[in-house]
């Protein structure tokens, strides 16, 4: 069963079409990169995947559960790190995690175990009592990942999670998430507009002006387009006079 299936997804802000008949699937334990220039529709897609926006047309299944018909079961399978930090800066690392655990209805005992495990996994055990405000950008992102994984989802969404980080933190975060993906059979959907965050064996979707213009494994797609991801991306996302994908 796929970790994520998106079928025929369309969404419009009034007369402005943000997504048009987008469809793809993500296998369990797979790292998938969703590439797209600014304004391609990535954040809209994330908002739909996380049920922050109501579905207008199309279907989303998370771990086999329909987001439309069984939202509770679907959201239980989903962990998310938003582009903009959603941590409470005034609360400590642990307080932020416990709040999230409560929102997912985890019992106190279960919360204790999960907070302990995720803090250790992210290397944050020593900093659990520090206010989030005192952490640097890279560590804040790690707290957000720990939080997203607290309820043991099968799918982790990261919406441009590396934005605002210095190059070393960006690389570290990318490697860390890949490690989680490998070691814990976690499916990851990583949205970005930075090509160096994509590896040859990743699944890749390229979104441009609300349409999915490429989908497949990176090395296979690259081979079809002169052996270079940059040229592939530039070619597929070139602005056109009509506004349609190139």
């Amino acid at each position: 069963m796929n970790a994520l299936t998106v079928q025929d997804l369309s969404f419009a802000y009034g007369p402005c079409q943000a997504l048009c008949e987008v469809g793809f699937s993500l296998a369990p334990g797979r790292f998938a990169a969703l590439l797209g220039p600014n304004g391609a529709g990535k954040s809209t897609l994330i908002a739909l995947l996380t049920r922050l926006y109501h579905l207008q047309r199309g279907e989303i299944h998370v771990g086999g559960h329909s987001l439309r018909d069984a939202p509770r079961a679907a959201l239980k399978q989903l962990g998310v790190v938003f582009q903009q930090s959603t941590l409470d800066l005034e609360l400590s690392v642990e307080q932020n995690l416990r709040y999230h655990a409560a929102l997912h209805g985890l019992s106190r005992r279960h919360t204790d175990l999960r907070v302990e495990a995720e803090l250790a996994r992210q290397g944050l055990s020593e900093r659990r009592r520090e206010k989030v405000r005192a952490l640097n950008g890279g560590h804040r992102r790690r707290v957000e990942i720990a939080r997203a994984l607290l309820h043991e989802p099968r799918l982790l969404l990261l919406d441009e999670a590396s934005v605002g980080l210095d190059p070393a933190s960006r690389l570290g975060l990318n490697q860390h998430v890949r490690q989680l993906c490998r070691e814990h059979d976690l499916s990851v959907l990583w949205t970005t507009h930075l090509l160096d965050e994509v590896h040859a064996d990743d699944a890749l979707m390229i979104l441009h002006q609300g349409r999915l213009v490429a989908s497949g494994q990176v090395d296979a797609l690259v081979q079809e387009h002169d052996g270079d991801l940059g040229r592939l991306f530039a070619g597929l996302t070139r602005p056109t006079a009509t506004g349609a994908p190139a």
Partner: peptide, 8 residues
């Protein structure tokens, strides 16, 4: 957003 992504 954190509140709204709760499954409840």
């Amino acid at each position: 957003r954190v509140l709204l992504t709760s499954p409840l």
